[in-house]
Amino acid sequence: MTIDATTRASLARLVRARGYEHRDPPFQLTSGGWSHDYVDGKHAVASGGDLRTVAEAALEEVGGGFDAVGGPTMGADALAHAMALLSGTGWFSIRKEPKGHGRNAWVEGTRLEEGQRVVVVEDVVSTGGSLLKGVDKLKELGVEVVAATAILDRSPTVAQRFASAGLVWRPLLTWEDLGIEPL
């Protein structure tokens, strides 16, 4: 499945209007790269209507057939919750480190069980490292990752990394859609 060109253009306008800033001098991203282009995916979907629009597009992009949706907290949380609400599935968040008490869990929200099918999401992906680390934690639980998506993929290497990991990568937008330099 792939969203149509009209939807893609509408999403690009939304992200540029609500989540994009040009910065001079360049700044260092969490991934270590440098850029003049700051994209705040969380701010882009901070209103209910915009979040619904993006979640509907993400569901169209990844299709159905999954039990839960989630990804690394904080970037994935809003999109995962909205997709779960619209699809009637569960949601989960993957912590940066396990909780220090209780279940000592890496994954919170829906209690994922072996054999369940999940979609992983993120707001903005620069290298894919955080999302792939999360996928590793999910595989330890015995769940199957059926697809991965993000509001924005900033680098051509992300698709390569996901392909190498045997994962379906379906970002809603790429750097090309926003007219920014890739990382």
Rank of each mutant, 00 (worst) to 15 (best):
I3Q: 02
T6A: 14
T7P: 01
S10T: 14
S10K: 10
L11W: 09
R13E: 15
R13C: 07
A17R: 10
A17Y: 02
A17T: 02
G33Y: 11
W34G: 00
S35L: 04
H36F: 08
V39E: 06
V39G: 01
V39C: 04
H43R: 09
A44C: 06
V45I: 15
V45G: 01
S47W: 04
G48L: 14
G49I: 13
D50K: 03
V54W: 02
V54K: 03
A55N: 09
E56A: 14
E56I: 01
A57D: 04
A58M: 13
A58F: 10
A58Y: 06
G63L: 15
G65C: 09
G65Q: 09
A68L: 10
A68T: 14
V69H: 04
G75M: 12
G75D: 12
D77H: 06
H81I: 10
H81K: 09
L85V: 11
L85W: 10
S87W: 09
S87H: 06
S87M: 12
G88S: 09
T89Q: 05
W91V: 05
I94Y: 10
R95G: 01
G100K: 15
A105R: 14
L112R: 07
L112W: 12
E113F: 11
E114C: 11
E114V: 13
E114H: 15
R117E: 12
V120K: 07
V121Q: 07
V121M: 13
E122Y: 13
D123M: 15
V125Q: 01
T127F: 02
T127L: 07
G128M: 12
L131Y: 07
L131C: 14
L132K: 00
K133L: 09
D136V: 11
L141G: 00
V143Q: 05
E144T: 13
V145C: 04
A148L: 09
L152V: 15
L152C: 08
R154W: 10
S155T: 14
V158L: 12
A159F: 07
A159Y: 03
Q160C: 01
R161G: 08
S164N: 14
L167K: 01
W169R: 02
R170G: 05
L173K: 04
L173Y: 08
L173I: 11
T174R: 05
L178H: 04
I180D: 00
P182Y: 03
L183S: 06
L183R: 07
